[in-house]
Design a protein around this nucleic acid. Structure first.
Lengths: 259, 259
DNA sequence: ATTTTCTGAATTGTTGACAATCAATTCTCA
DNA sequence: TGAGAATTGATTGTCAACAATTCAGAAAAT
């Protein structure tokens, strides 16, 4: 019933008439696919047809291919020779590895931050947490999830190591692949509260406590996503039995994958 | 004086007559460039002309371009729109970040190893260190450097986290970009001895000691590479004044960048 | 003599057509 | 009816030519 899984929905414009090209076109392709993944409009394992991407993003084939290579290296899509591109599927084992890696790297950045964060950095962190809370309270779940995801990235940026920041960015971007469930609006403030606690520990200069809180936060998130995954698996099986084609791609409503 | 910086030198065959294509061609392009970097036959900052890569690797332009994109994502080359590809240059700050990242990630893998390594894993580590020593003693410096580089990768593989292993692989591959100096054969067994100590600590189950040794090892390597870099800078300036074109690309002799 | 502008070669980026490959359907035969 | 082979449709991979861009060097103006 949904012939076009790539729906701009918010800001991203559809083509413009003539097929465009260049690095900006590649960036647009990446953005279209990433937003579709973030919005859970396309399920892991879905084939990405170049022609459909072309008519959806208005980019030429070279730009599309470059974008797909880009996303493949980021771990969001898988490229099989002569078979094309599919949205990457994370096995439970891979999900565990991703969270283990995030805990290792982010804990180090958090410890670093607790030892050298500036007043400006603290202000930015607190402002970020405040924006998160505000987005939650206003019910702007899309923005809330976005900000929540970016919080960990901000910590990495403030820690000052671009190499580790880049790695964390890739790992965070793969998070939407881990959960594939309906929203559970019960624990809306969990993530935000954990973030506030981490910021408080950083402000207090207690790196060990901040790392401990971050570990607990990520472990809790991992458990939630695991539970969501199992629920989604059940839903997927039911849907398959019912004859639905691409899983529980029910609608446009916001999903929760707090970080 | 050296019109062809891409010289197979060891195993990699030149084309074969007809231009080949496919994923294997892309792999060959990557291998040619990587070996040239590892052998210090091309200096950081060198422009990579697609046509020259074509006649050097015998691959078509599509394969060459794909390979360049691959290497760009690995951080070994830099791609500028409409300007082409150059061998990536690591600033001193970036080098420090890379080593900080390696210490963070590898220390975690080393701690993990100390807690869960199997007898088979220990045997593989000891065999690896033995091969390193043998290569050093036999004067096969090329193999020695290769094995030395792979040692850290083997530890990551044994630790069982493919995500972190992939990150470490990329960081290790960027190491030849950090030093650009002539060989210093004085401390030939430093790296190897440090590796043996780390393996001993892992075998003893003392993760903290193994992590400490690994940190010291990597810090020492960082200092050596930094000193080499400064020396290379002096040499590069002299060479530029003398009119040499691509820095101290003296010959085929092996360089030291122990890991 | 120095700066500016212009022209030309060299290189990269893109396009459209063609070949190779794969999945699914259909057809044939037991 | 069912299993296997051949076919068809669709999609990806590749290639060669074309367009766009950049860089270097020369010519001209200040």
């Amino acid at each position: 019933m949904a012939p076009s899984p790539f729906h701009p929905a918010n800001g991203v414009r559809p083509p413009a008439g003539a097929a465009m090209s260049g690095p900006e076109a590649e960036q647009r392709v990446v953005q279209v696919i990433v937003e579709a993944i973030l919005g859970h409009r396309i399920a892991p394992g879905t084939r990405l047809i170049e022609r459909e991407l072309g008519i959806a993003s208005g980019a030429s084939r070279s730009a599309i291919r470059n974008g797909l290579v880009h996303l493949a290296h980021a771990g969001l899509v898988e490229l099989s020779p002569n078979k094309g591109a599919t949205i990457a599927m994370c096995s439970p084992d891979e999900a565990r590895q991703i969270f283990d890696a995030r805990i290792v790297i982010e804990n180090s950045t958090v410890r670093t931050l607790a030892g050298m964060v500036t007043q400006d950095g603290l202000a930015r962190l607190r402002a970020f947490v405040g924006d998160e809370r505000k987005a939650y309270e206003d019910g702007r779940m899309e923005d809330a999830r976005h900000l929540s995801r970016r919080f960990h990235l901000l910590m990495a940026e403030l820690a000052g190591n671009d190499v580790l920041t880049s790695v964390i960015r890739d790992l965070i971007n793969r998070q939407p692949l881990l959960s594939w469930s309906r929203p559970d609006t019960k624990r809306r403030f969990c993530g935000n509260h954990a973030h506030a606690e981490i910021v408080a520990a950083i402000a207090a200069g207690d790196g060990e406590d901040a790392a401990r809180l971050n570990t607990e936060h990520l472990r809790a998130l991992e458990r939630e996503l695991g539970a969501d995954r199992k629920a989604a698996m059940r839903g997927l099986e039911e849907a398959q039995e019912a004859g639905s084609e691409t899983g529980p791609a029910g609608g446009e409503d916001a999903r929760q994958d707090f970080d």
